[in-house]
Nucleic acid binder design. Structure first.
Lengths: 191, 191
DNA sequence: ATCATTTTTTGATCTACATCAAATCAGTTT
DNA sequence: AAACTGATTTGATGTAGATCAAAAAATGAT
């Protein structure tokens, strides 16, 4: 796990010393308790977060009022509702912490200024999107389309060892797009 | 429909005249017949294409040898296997034309040079990814997770009027993640 | 420890969609 | 036009996973 913001940033794409310093001052270090909402649907996503410790879930609320998880962010992941962030339009999803968490955040407006000002920061941002976003999200589509519930579960726990101790069965089931009952039966080896 | 490459590029993000000219010379105009493969799985995706006329499908071949469509690109869309392109690793999917098509292409290496050379081109590329990629792909996940087969079909034909005349039932069914038989029954109003 | 609340498990039944098999339709070739 | 080919439709049956209901287990509060 990476502790320092500088390390997180430089691992994505190496910035010149002077640019790095200017970037760093635009980030804020934050701590929030379990259940805190980073984003509520209907509001634009004004921040991009780097989580250094903790866990969050992204979810929609469907017409029947049921919450459906679309994503988990554990520890060192980037957190953002990309669609809402890039267009600064009301978010469709909400983002809620499921553990006490620590993170760094940067505001949309500050990011735009840095992108316009520094060529190297624009290249950094491209790498960020490529590394942490594109691959993951295309994988998710393939999983939903090709794998059955049991395989989706196995893949999830392979990639996130320990997730079962940190995220409730109901939350995991919702991410896998199955009911709690079905996940319980998968775990019990009955499916 | 946009015919000129210049118009396509400038609509994404306005480039300085001199940069635009340098960008334009890095694109090639191409025409390919129906059934041509832009990309075969196993090979890295070396190009990014702007389709100006025609249609393509993106598909995986699963363990049982069945082809599963993941995406359609009709007329003015960007075509690329993003995961393979950004990492220059072997692609998991193939891209095949389903109509005689016209397009412009730029090579990965040329794109990288332009990104490093011109700040404005890096900003252009960020906009490209934001506009044509992020929104679409997150929508697709939500659709697969929340909508049943009939609603996914209705949404597809609402967003792509005329797709039923251009893409075969089997190809559409595969994209919707249902069988041909089920799609036929949906169309007949029996589901 | 006890009670209350939430989370997980178990069982019975139901449903959307798959699978398999065969028939029909459309477009091409001879 | 007849014959061949591929695309679409129809019918019968099977199954993964949903839904509904209730029990059991875990977690937390007094």
């Amino acid at each position: 796990m990476k502790e320092s913001l500088e390390e997180i940033i430089q691992t994505i794409y190496l910035l010149p010393e002077q640019v790095l310093e200017e970037v760093l001052v635009n980030f804020q270090h934050l701590e929030y308790p379990k259940n805190y909402f980073l984003l509520k649907s209907g509001k634009p996503c004004k921040h991009l977060w780097f989580m250094t410790k903790g866990a969050a879930r992204h979810f929609y609320t469907n017409e029947q009022g049921k919450e459906m998880n679309t994503w988990f962010s554990l520890d060192t992941q980037i957190i953002v509702d990309t669609t809402s962030f890039v267009k600064q339009e009301p978010a469709h999803e909400s983002i809620q912490l499921i553990e006490d968490s620590e993170m760094y955040s940067i505001e949309y407006a500050a990011l735009q200024v840095l992108l316009q000002k520094h060529h190297s920061f624009a290249l950094w941002f491209i790498k960020l999107v490529e590394l942490h976003y594109v691959a993951q999200i295309e994988d998710r589509i393939a999983d939903l389309q090709f794998l059955d519930a049991k395989k989706r579960y196995q893949k999830l726990i392979n990639l996130n060892s320990g997730i079962t101790n940190r995220v409730s069965l109901g939350n995991i089931a919702s991410y896998l797009n199955i009911t709690q009952e079905t996940l319980s039966r998968i775990r019990a080896g009955k499916l």
